[in-house]
Each structure stands twice: as structure tokens, then as C-alpha cells.
Nucleic acid binder design. Structure first.
Length: 320
DNA sequence: AATGAAGGCAACCGCAGAAGG
DNA sequence: GCCTTCTGCGGTTGCCTTCAT
């Protein structure tokens, strides 16, 4: 664009605002309105660039600024809107009276983003990360190794090895269970979305049945308000809730519902950040989520999300 | 009590689009 | 239609505070 930055002019103050500067800016704007930000600093007697003044006003001095912690409602709104709008902080802020885009951005970067990551979701797409399935081959290899160890001729060595392999065994079983649950869950989701599109009249019931199979606590949150953006129905996402170790409403549940990920799911906001060691204790935290399908981004043409796994995958046949 | 690490927040920077001449 | 100016937005940085060792 070739335009020189407004703050390049030498002699203009940068950095934190003093109470005196705040007072000058506040009084000037209350008296005259901000008008042209470019000329405001000079007229208001401030040695700042217009940009800096605008930022100070919009993020701090504006009388309708709401301060303090974000409520759970606000948190949910941010999560939901972010899943739809992405990093459109100003657009998100427009839905949160009294909150600035900068404040929301900071809150996202310092709290919500971390929480999503910790729960195994990609904070940008709100889709599950694939870490778990990336690790599956290793888990399976470990299981095979355990079998070999168990077949070792030396009984004493086998005894030692059995102990060492016991932990792996538990992990493998858990992984298998998670995997299977996810398959069911995703199938339910896929069918449900198909039903929503009118393709299969009774598919939703089937989906509900499947959802119930893998998620006793599963809810189909039909009360979730549809949110529209740009005048259209928003794409919906279906993600399971990841188990968390800290207080909260989730156990190891996989509530299937064709609503957006945390925002309106289960009526609660994200659980507080859990210790990462807890996440490690629950390999399934990524497990189910890692494979859950979503209509977000659309385009899935396969009736099942993982044709490469199901139903002929040796892992499944082994499990069954 | 001292020190380093991490978290939280305010402010800056650069870019893109809108508006005006 | 083109150019310049201005505004707004999103990403990033840096400082201050809090926490852990």
C-alpha cells in the first residue's frame, strides 16, 4: 500500500498510557467525539498517534467496556462463534456487549485455546486432533511385542516380562474400546446428519440407537439454538467430549449430538484446564475425538468416516 | 527470601479494505 | 478508474504479575 505507518513520526510517545493522557483523551472525546483519529491527538493535546488513541479508547476508555472475568455464557458464546467465524475477533466481539475484540482475543489465546488443545481439539478448526490414531500403530505393535514376550521359553523371564507388559495390556484394551466406541459414535453422527438432510427418514432413530450404544449419557441436544452467520444456517459439528480429570460434568462420555462442539453441548462450557499429566493418563482423551466425524468443512461422501478401518480392518476383526 | 518460569494483558505493528478526491 | 488517505482488524510483542522451586 506504500503508506507510511502513522506512528513513524518521531517524537510521538509509545507505550503505556498515563492517567493524565487517559483523562485528556476521555475528556476530548466526550466533548467532541473522536472524529478523525488522525487529527485527534493534536486537537486533544496528546503526543500520540491517532492509532494509539483509537486503540486506547476502544479497548480501555470507552464507557461501555465491561471489565472482569468472562462469564460461562460469554465463554460459550466465544467458543461457538469462533467455531463458526474463526479468528474474526471483531465479529465475535459484536455479539458480546461490552467486550472488546482485543480482550476476547487475549482470552482466547490464554485460556480457551489451551483448553481445547488439552482436550484434544484443534483450536483452529474445533475438530479433533489425530494424535491418538497416529499412535495406534505403535500401540498395536506394542501388543504384538507383548504376545511375543509372553511366548518366550524362559518362564522366569516371561514372568518379568508379563509384569512389564501388563501396563501396555491395559492401554491396548482401553484403546480398543475407545476405538470401537468412536466407530459407533461416528456412524451415529453420520446417519443423523444424513437424516437431517432428509435422505433417510428413519435414520435419526437408528443414529440415536447407535449413539446410545456407545454413549449411555449421550444427548441429542435438540434445544441447541441454531446460530446463523451471514444469513445462513451454520455448519454444525459433532464432537465427543473428552474426558477430563478435574471437576466438571464430563466423565468418559461421548455425547452424540449434531450441535457444535462445546458451545451448546451438554449445556456446559469447557471444563477448566486439567493438568497435562492427567491428559496423559487418559489416552482416550484424544481417542474418540480423534476419529469423530464432522460436517464442519463438509464434503464427506463416504457413509462411514474411516473406510480404511472399517469393517475389514484386522484390528476390528481381532477385537470382534 | 531470591530467582526463574509461566501467565495475563495492554499496546504496537503491518496489512487490507473502504472512502474520498 | 486510479491514487491517496484513513480506519479497522488480526497477529505479535513486551512488560508486569503471579507462581513454583
Amino acid at each position: 500500500m506504500g503508506r507510511s505507518p502513522c506512528c513513524d513520526e518521531s517524537g510521538l510517545k509509545k507505550g503505556p498510557w498515563t492517567p493524565e493522557e487517559d483523562e485528556k483523551l476521555l475528556q476530548y472525546i466526550q466533548k467532541n467525539g473522536h472524529g478523525s483519529w488522525r487529527t485527534l491527538p493534536r486537537l486533544a493535546g496528546l503526543n500520540r498517534c491517532g492509532k494509539s488513541c483509537r486503540l486506547r479508547w476502544t479497548n480501555y476508555l470507552r464507557p461501555d467496556i465491561k471489565r472482569g472475568k468472562f462469564s460461562q455464557e460469554e465463554e460459550q458464546t466465544i467458543l461457538h462463534l469462533h467455531s463458526v467465524l474463526g479468528n474474526k475477533w471483531s465479529a465475535i466481539a459484536a455479539h458480546l456487549p461490552g467486550r472488546t475484540d482485543n480482550e476476547i482475543k487475549n482470552f482466547w489465546n490464554t485460556h480457551l485455546k489451551k483448553r481445547l488443545i488439552q482436550m484434544g481439539f484443534d483450536p483452529m478448526t474445533h475438530r479433533p486432533r489425530t494424535d491418538f490414531f497416529a499412535a495406534l500403530p505403535q500401540l498395536i505393535a506394542l501388543a504384538a511385542l507383548r504376545d511375543q514376550l509372553g511366548a518366550a521359553a524362559d518362564p522366569a523371564a516371561a514372568q518379568l516380562q508379563a509384569g512389564a507388559a501388563a501396563g501396555v495390556d491395559v492401554a491396548i484394551q482401553a484403546a480398543k474400546l475407545q476405538y470401537l466406541q468412536c466407530l459407533f459414535q461416528s456412524a451415529a453422527t453420520t446417519i443423523a446428519s444424513t437424516a437431517a438432510a432428509g435422505a433417510a427418514p428413519d435414520a435419526e432413530a437408528a443414529a440415536a440407537a447407535l449413539g446410545g450404544l456407545c454413549s449411555p449419557q449421550g444427548t441429542h441436544d435438540s434445544t441447541a439454538p441454531p446460530v446463523s452467520a451471514a444469513g445462513g444456517q451454520l455448519p454444525s459439528c459433532t464432537f465427543p467430549e473428552a474426558p477430563v480429570s478435574s471437576e466438571g460434568n464430563q466423565g468418559l462420555s461421548y455425547g452424540g449430538a449434531d450441535v457444535d462442539v462445546f458451545a451448546f453441548h451438554g449445556g456446559g462450557s469447557l471444563p477448566p484446564l486439567a493438568d497435562l499429566s492427567d491428559a496423559a493418563k487418559y489416552p482416550s482423551a484424544d481417542g474418540c475425538s480423534a476419529t469423530a466425524s464432522s460436517s464442519f468443512g463438509g464434503g464427506a461422501t463416504s457413509p462411514l468416516p474411516w473406510p480404511e478401518f472399517f469393517p475389514d480392518d484386522p484390528f476390528i476383526t481381532d477385537f470382534l
